[in-house]
Design a protein around this nucleic acid. Structure first.
Lengths: 216, 216
DNA sequence: AAATATCTGTGACATATGCAACTATTTTAT
DNA sequence: ATAAAATAGTTGCATATGTCACAGATATTT
């Protein structure tokens, strides 16, 4: 746990003392389990120590909206999301995962437990939160694209740049990708097929190979 | 400037000393002016002291995407957005506004200028960043809605709850609202008209009055 | 006060996309 | 090893939505 970015610069001994002083709680979850549901009050911040999870919400008509996907270092909780009163928010495990919960009262200022390790924790938390902000911005960019094709191309272009190869494997199911891009799954499959026919890319399941240099 | 949330808990004298040590720069802009363009490296963080502004990006084909809207305390910069290499990012003033720029090197750890005020600044910055995260999440929720009507209803429902009245005025032009919701303006107007005809709401320009209790 | 630019409002048209329904394949659980 | 569940892949159909092209109303600038 000392290797987590959240605890960088905090010695193992200090960390343990701080966590017990904070009443921090570490829990494990397996695929499909509910990790957290949001209330209207600020209660705790969760951070994913390992595994994958996602946050979704359900409205009164029962329709599902994917809000966020979390990997290691992913932060969740009311502090970051502002729950709307007519929606239900649920963080669910996508794989076996470990989660650390920090009570909100130990993070918010003014703080009773002021100490070096605490300020260092806030500092680390700040940097993780800017990363979260980048992730959210990136998805806003994707969701803002006018067409399904543009959404796919923007997403693929990004993965392609990260993987430094024109061949890559999407790290989620195509069903989840559709939710992530905010499009209907079958519509997305249709567009993927059209792009294959036009020679823009090759695809088999989650494996994608870009054939032409994609702009924008 | 001492009244800014960013500087809460920092005395006026310490603030001035810290800002000059940071080489912080305060600038004024008027409507339409470019406040900042993003580069691939982390250079500085901007915070809106007063006025309104927005961040948009332009792709190679010249198409416009609204990424964020900023008011007082709005944070912008590469730290929060992760610029994609094929897009141009521009922060532009929507009204006369004042901006404080903080060089990134003074925010990132490890920091040479470690002091009480600095940790307090990070603490404040952290809380502003969680607010930003909430704002971004909220828009992802809106952009994820499947239909234009659902986007409008979700947005109106939120404004209605905030204003505690079924009558309210949208704080941006309808043209900007369309960008914000990621829909075509004329399509949005069409839908607005349909909702009027169905007796769901009344509208005249930016003034909206909800007629029926809206769920979800 | 006039000129200019921006914004609101509307309609015709083409099409991209959601929806429903189904099969085949792959993965997970028992 | 078998059953069950989730995922990938496809198609027809209806329609919601983008595009284009206006006119009138409001702002903004000079």
């Amino acid at each position: 746990m000392e290797s987590m970015e959240l605890f960088e610069g905090i010695s193992s001994g200090n960390l343990n003392r701080m966590l017990s002083c904070f009443h921090a709680r570490k829990s494990s979850f397996s695929r499909g389990q509910t990790i957290h549901t949001y209330s209207s009050s600020l209660e705790k911040v969760g951070i994913l120590l390992s595994g994958k999870a996602h946050l979704y919400c359900i409205d009164q008509s029962g329709s599902y909206t994917l809000l966020e996907r979390f990997e290691k270092n992913g932060l969740f909780g009311e502090l970051f999301t502002l729950p709307l009163d007519n929606l239900e928010y649920i963080v669910e495990a996508d794989s076996d995962c470990e989660v650390l919960f920090l009570p909100y009262s130990c993070i918010v200022r003014p703080c009773a437990n002021i100490c070096d390790h605490h300020t260092r924790l806030i500092d680390n938390l700040f940097h993780l939160t800017t990363q979260k902000s980048q992730t959210l911005s990136f998805r806003i960019n994707l969701l803002s694209a006018k067409t399904t094709r543009q959404k796919l191309l923007n997403y693929f272009h990004y993965i392609q740049a990260r993987s430094e190869s024109s061949s890559f494997t999407i790290d989620m199911s195509l069903t989840d990708l559709a939710s992530y891009l905010g499009v209907d799954r079958s519509s997305m499959m249709r567009e993927l097929k059209a792009m294959k026919n036009e020679g823009i890319l090759e695809s088999k399941g989650r494996r994608i190979t870009m054939k032409t240099i994609q702009h924008s």
